[in-house]
């Protein structure tokens, strides 16, 4: 459904961005999205391995706007296993490369600004986030820790460790920092997400319910938090997005609602009469809108929730509506 209302909150499906494409105004296995000032979105395209084994040209970082304007892309042939991206207050972009064990840095124009290995403290850098002071937090799927670095890669602190007890991780992936400095982590292998204080004290766990409106998480890949503290988790294994109250209880879930083509997708379909005919023969197109491996998730300053719908090569955007009024129900 396009509008989801629960517990005094409402999320409206807004629109899709992009299409499945190896170049230009489309995406190839978009794995993460990061919000930059001015409605700009960076989209990390995981792509596929090249014939030589590494660095295929469809691995790239796309730069688009939330209104679906294509600005360009960069970082082609510079990434092996890019997993996540984050943007700092100056507009610099940081990209984890889990194979190279490095953070690759680009400026606001997409120019390569170097890379760092965190003083050798990056075993398997996966998720990445910046705090208000431009410190960089990275999940290390090898050591099962959250690691904190300065923006130029100096190792500052870490917490976590392998295990399933509260505060421990099993191949963690996505990470985000709340407005108050809290650290939120998608604990992929433990099928849950966790919240910590800035210095690593465990505060809350998400997704361990085995019943209820949303059930348990299955290999969550990313996490985001809105201005009111509601928490969004990409439930990658279940192909859903789940929404939690900040202290843990589940609120609802989103299944994906992109039943209308994005602007770029529409251009492709309308330029191909055979595709138009093929769609007209399909009995049930509802599954067109569903998430197929939602991976990355981000919330912008207007509380738009932006999800990378990886296998479908698009983003899905939901808007959290603050003053929603129910329609007349006997219409």
């Amino acid at each position: 459904m396009l509008t989801t209302t629960v517990s005094g909150r409402t999320w409206n499906f807004s629109h899709a961005i992009g299409r499945n494409a190896a170049a230009g105004n489309g995406f190839t296995q978009p794995t993460d999205v990061a919000v930059a000032p001015g409605g700009v979105l960076y989209v990390l395209n995981r792509g596929q391995e090249g014939a030589g084994g590494v660095q295929a040209p469809n691995k790239r970082i796309g730069k688009v706007t939330i209104t679906e304007e294509f600005i360009g892309d960069f970082a082609r042939e510079e990434l092996v296993w890019p997993m996540s991206i984050a943007v700092d207050s100056a507009g610099n972009l940081y990209c984890t490369d889990e194979y190279d064990k490095k953070i690759k840095v680009y400026d606001a124009d997409g120019i390569n600004a170097g890379e760092w290995n965190g003083d050798g403290n990056l075993g398997s850098p996966s998720g990445i986030a910046c705090d208000a002071d431009d410190n960089i937090y990275v999940t290390d799927a090898d050591s099962n820790e959250v690691k904190k670095f300065s923006s130029d890669g100096k190792f500052l602190a870490s917490f976590g460790g392998a295990g399933s007890a509260p505060g421990k991780f099993n191949r963690p992936w996505g990470i985000t920092i709340g407005a108050d400095g809290s650290v939120y982590v998608a604990d992929w292998g433990n099928n849950r997400a966790q919240k910590f204080s800035a210095d690593g004290e465990h505060i809350a766990t998400y997704g361990e319910e085995t019943s209820g409106p949303a059930g348990a998480l299955n290999h969550p890949s990313d996490i985001a938090v809105d201005s009111e503290g509601d928490v969004y988790v990409s439930d990658w294994g279940n192909k859903l997005v789940k929404i939690y109250e900040n202290d843990g209880p589940v609120l609802t879930q989103l299944e994906g609602d992109a039943i209308e083509f994005s602007k770029w997708a529409k251009e492709v379909v309308e330029s191909n009469p055979d595709v138009v005919k093929a769609y007209r023969r399909v009995k049930d197109t509802r599954s067109l809108g569903l998430f197929n491996r939602p991976v990355g998730i981000a919330v912008d300053e207007d509380d738009n929730i932006i999800i990378t719908d990886s296998t479908r090569g698009r983003l899905q955007v939901y808007a959290k509506e603050k003053d929603y009024m129910d329609p007349q129900f006997n219409l």
Binding site: N20, F261, W264, A278, V282, K283, L288, G313
Partner: peptide, 13 residues
């Protein structure tokens, strides 16, 4: 086989 959604613009169904 039933008619499936075409591969464009969102990949295989």
């Amino acid at each position: 086989i039933s008619a499936k959604m075409p591969r464009y613009p969102y990949g295989r169904h």
